[in-house]
């Protein structure tokens, strides 16, 4: 079985779907000849041609809004936004239109669109290249928000996203694009949207994370002696509440790690659901380790912003000591 990183896994998923379904098309800035700034579409232009791999004019709202029309009229567009910080211009189109087409037409029309974007910090990039945008979209009924943290899931989830009948925001953890290599089957497979994964079983404490943070959380937790259950959320919306609740019922303790700003970050929603469904199982207040409520800093300060081993272990020890 070949070893792949997330970039290669994304490319394998795109290739699979481009081969299998002639309605599938990939559109965005530099996704054609250049193969994408992160090389996610490398080689696909030569394989599938300029009608399937489309270098669009440089406009994120233009990419998303025309992709909406394409999706409504029977195509399966996969739109790439080069960095998640550039997605804001397309926000109106995603919220006001893509998310509501099925509902506003009472089921006559749908918008099977995938918007892929690398997200998150930790790569010493320019301003607005490191945004964590997941909560904006998780707040919008009609959109699904999927975040793989492993190559295997990246391929399986992206195939599911392309086949999904509804619009999916597919956020790729830029910091670990090439940092994890693992077995990824050549053959086609899917990973279901809306299902979290128990990354590691444990009995003392549940730690929940997703995206790039999952890898760094897992590494930090190797330094802890507690028996820790780690959950990879994988889909932010719709959230797999059941897997989270079952785990917290078992452990009675919970820490959530996300790198987005703290206020209204996705950890807040997870905490609310645990409070609604498993409050009396809790042995201690839930802790969240998050980015701060400030602009994402430039390279020299980003390591102070991102949740790290020290902050994660501090939260774990605090929850375990209560």
């Amino acid at each position: 079985m070949p070893k792949m990183n997330i970039v290669e896994a994304v490319r394998a998923a795109l290739r699979n779907e481009l081969k299998k379904d002639k309605r599938v098309m990939v559109m965005g800035e530099d996704v054609g000849k250049n193969g994408g700034v992160f090389r996610c579409t490398d080689g696909l232009y030569n394989e599938f041609g300029s009608e399937r791999l489309i270098d669009t004019p440089l406009s994120e709202p233009g990419i998303v809004s025309t992709a909406i029309g394409l999706a409504v009229n029977g195509m399966r567009p996969v739109a790439e936004i080069q960095f998640s910080g550039f997605i804001y211009g397309a926000f109106d189109q995603l919220v006001s239109h893509a998310a509501k087409i099925r509902s506003r037409s009472r089921g006559r029309y749908s918008c099977p669109l995938v918007v892929r974007a690398p997200f998150g910090g930790g790569i010493r990039a320019l301003e607005l290249h490191c945004e964590s945008v997941e909560t904006f979209f998780a707040h919008v009924p009609g959109l699904k928000v999927v975040i793989p943290s492993h190559p295997y899931d990246a391929k399986g989830l992206l195939i599911s996203a392309i086949r999904d009948p509804d619009p999916v925001i597919f956020l790729e953890p830029m910091r670990v694009y090439r940092a994890i290599k693992e077995d990824v089957p050549d053959k086609e497979y899917t990973v279901p949207i809306g299902k979290a994964e128990i990354e590691q079983e444990g009995s003392d404490l549940t730690v929940i994370s997703y995206g790039a943070m999952l890898k760094y959380t897992k590494e930090a937790l190797e330094k802890s002696d507690y028996s820790i259950e780690i959950i990879d959320v994988r889909t932010i919306s719709p959230l797999d509440t059941e897997t989270i609740i079952k785990s917290v019922e078992k452990t009675g303790r919970c820490v959530i790690v996300n790198e987005a700003p703290k206020t209204c970050g996705f950890a807040a929603e997870i905490i609310a659901r645990i409070n609604e469904k498993a409050f009396f199982n809790l042995e201690a207040p839930i802790e969240r380790v998050t980015g701060y409520d400030c602009a994402f800093p430039l390279a020299k300060l980003e390591n102070y912003y991102l949740p790290d081993e020290k902050r994660i272990l501090k939260a774990v020890n605090k929850v375990m000591s209560q």
Binding site: S65, T66, I68, G69, V72, N73, H97
Partner: peptide
């Protein structure tokens, strides 16, 4: 919303062309 439907028609027409 004002004007936002214009590119939908363009995408839709694009699909017709591709098909």
């Amino acid at each position: 919303p004002v004007g936002t439907q214009t590119p939908h028609a363009v995408g839709c027409a694009w699909a017709s062309k591709l098909k």
